[in-house]
């Protein structure tokens, strides 16, 4: 089985998010990490590939910040990597899907896995748009896979309120992977060393046949800081004081205990 996994470098959850005078995100203090959902996707791909001597390619579209994630994917066990070198700020979700599709279309993949959404922008659409651009089937929110049978796979899709759907998906297909499906492995030292020798191909948009960035379907009208919302009544002081005050409030004022 040949599997590709899409990975995104997302703004680190601990990074300082601030706007400059023009309302743009201040880039100088941003740090990046791998999108958490993508790690579940990488792990699932490696497990599926292990069971039938398959091949896993990790791919990321973005600036040089994308490389760190690809290296991690290689260290976890992917065979090779593709870095589509571009500025994601020039692309909307359909543009990202278009460039990924251009890089993957002749790879002969049976499956392409992606995280359900990105931790920073939460778009939750690139996976399915990529499937459509490649002409693949797709299904989302996958929390369980099964061994493929006759070019198709039965997957477990998470719905709301604890419900699930069992869905049969024909290959080739894109699956978006939800957390809880597995526990991503930590790259071993051996894996990290081996990753350094693995092939990491860099492709620009021109190499993929694009004349500039693909046209946008969605345009940004700007970022704002949300108005402060009313906060809880915050109890101040050391742990002993706040704990005592909380118990007093819950007993005497709220009569909740």
């Amino acid at each position: 089985m040949r599997i590709a996994v899409c990975m995104k470098a997302v703004v680190d959850s601990q990074a300082r998010i601030e706007l400059d005078g023009d309302g743009n995100l201040r880039q100088d203090q941003l740090r990046f990490e791998v999108n958490e959902y993508d790690l579940y996707a990488v792990e699932e791909a490696i497990r599926l590939a292990e069971s039938d001597e398959g091949h896993v390619t990790v791919i990321s579209a973005g600036t040089a910040d994308a490389v760190q994630g690809l290296r991690k994917g290689l260290a976890m066990g992917a065979a090779d990597a593709i870095h589509v070198d571009c500025d994601p700020d020039d692309l909307d979700a359909s543009g990202v899907a278009a460039v990924l599709a251009a890089a993957l279309h002749d790879g002969g993949y049976d499956l392409v896995l992606a995280g359900v959404e990105s931790d920073d922008l939460g778009g939750s659409q690139v996976g399915v748009l990529l499937a459509e651009a490649l002409g693949y089937a797709s299904t989302t929110l996958v929390v369980g896979t099964n061994e493929p049978v006759d070019g198709a796979m039965q997957v477990r899709r998470e719905l709301e309120g604890g419900e699930h759907a069992n869905v049969q998906v024909q290959f080739p297909a894109v699956l978006t992977i939800q957390s809880g499906i597995n526990e991503p492995r930590y790259p071993s030292l051996k894996g990290i060393m081996a990753a350094k020798r693995k092939d990491l191909a860099v492709k620009g948009l021109a190499d993929l046949g694009f004349d500039g960035a693909p046209a946008r379907r969605v345009e940004s009208l700007g970022l704002t800081i949300p108005p402060p919302r009313e906060l809880a009544r915050m109890l101040e002081g050391g742990a002993e004081e706040t704990a005592a005050e909380l118990v007093r409030i819950l007993r005497e004022e709220e009569k909740a205990l």
């Binding site: 909307d92 979700a93 359909s94 659409q125």
Partner: peptide, 24 residues
């Protein structure tokens, strides 16, 4: 809805109608 239905179907509709999609 930004729920399992919309997460699955909205991007399919967007792709097939050449439409832009805003989520959540």
């Amino acid at each position: 809805p930004h729920a399992p239905l919309g997460r699955d179907l909205a991007p399919l509709l967007a792709a097939r109608l050449d439409a832009g999609l805003l989520t959540d």
